[in-house]
């Protein structure tokens, strides 16, 4: 049972020690990692994913429930309690979606995987506008389809208590649906993001700079309110996006956007 993970400081890109003493993330908590490109956001979640023991470039150390994780956890990703969705939108495995999920379910020691495979494809299809079928080869899925599938896979087959999401806003998938589902779970979720909506919706924000954690900010009340407003705005932008994608011209007055 994973109650919390602790990240102990490493070094920034110039070799200077990070200034925090430790960062603890708890089950059911959402956190965003923000900062400019190259500031070390992906490296931060990769440390968590690999359960770093001062043996990654950042030299950070990650503890589970306050202890050093046991070796098998570290070296076997299929028993690691972590699912990470990278920015990667390409699969190289020459397998159909069904075969891919079947092997992954086997890696995760799921017996009678038929039902969960169907569920995973169905869930992925709620995240993306382009339908994924069980016979679609994973190598030819679009970027959005791949990510939708991998997120659904992380939730249902990986079923990990810790989920790491690297810039899900980039993939042309329905962000809203994913946030809804993830917020309902008791999982520990980390978002690497440039999206203010996602950043404001999380309980904690970790600010990165030059490869190091600069500070940790807790969501305040104004931000909770701002997030609600932004979410509304984001929905409208979303509708607009889908209309444009579908080839509509905007004639409706409600879409007359005022920027002043």
């Amino acid at each position: 049972m994973i109650r919390e993970i602790t990240i102990l400081p490493g070094y920034d890109k110039n070799g200077a020690a990070e200034s925090f003493s430790s960062i603890t993330l708890k089950a059911g908590e959402t956190t965003s990692i923000v900062g400019p490109t190259g500031s070390g956001k992906t490296a931060f979640i990769t440390d968590i994913e690999l359960l770093a023991q001062k043996d990654t470039t950042t030299r950070r150390q990650v503890l589970i429930n306050g202890d050093i994780p046991k070796d098998p956890y570290r070296y076997n990703p299929s028993i690691r309690p972590i699912a990470m969705i990278t920015q990667n939108t390409k699969c190289f495995a020459d397998l159909s979606t069904e075969e891919f999920l079947e092997v992954h379910a086997r890696a995760r020691k799921i017996k009678n995987s038929k039902a969960v495979i169907t569920e995973t494809i169905d869930l992925a299809n709620t995240f993306t506008g382009e339908k994924i079928t069980n016979i679609s080869k994973v190598t030819v899925l679009s970027g959005g389809q791949t990510r939708a599938l991998l997120i659904a896979d992380a939730l249902l087959i990986g079923a990990a208590p810790i989920i790491l999401l690297d810039e899900i806003e980039n993939a042309g998938i329905f962000k809203q649906e994913i946030i809804n589902i993830i917020q309902k779970t008791s999982k520990m979720v980390l978002f690497v993001t440039h999206d203010p909506v996602i950043a404001l919706l999380t309980k904690k924000r970790i600010i990165m700079e030059n490869g190091a954690v600069k500070k940790v900010i807790f969501q305040n009340e104004t931000e909770t309110q701002a997030a609600e407003n932004l979410l509304e705005l984001d929905k409208r932008v979303g509708i607009l996006r889908e209309k444009l994608r579908a080839g509509y011209e905007l004639t409706d007055d409600s879409f007359r956007v005022k920027f002043a």
């Binding site: 994913e49 990703p77 299929s78 972590i82 699912a83 990470m84 969705i85 990278t86 990667n88 390409k90 699969c91 190289f92 495995a93 397998l95 891919f100 092997v103 992954h104 890696a107 995760r108 791949t146 991998l150 896979d153 992380a154 087959i157 990986g158």
Partner: peptide
């Protein structure tokens, strides 16, 4: 270069 799920596969 690849997703975690694909590495596990």
């Amino acid at each position: 270069l690849v997703s975690q799920a694909e590495r596990e596969v």
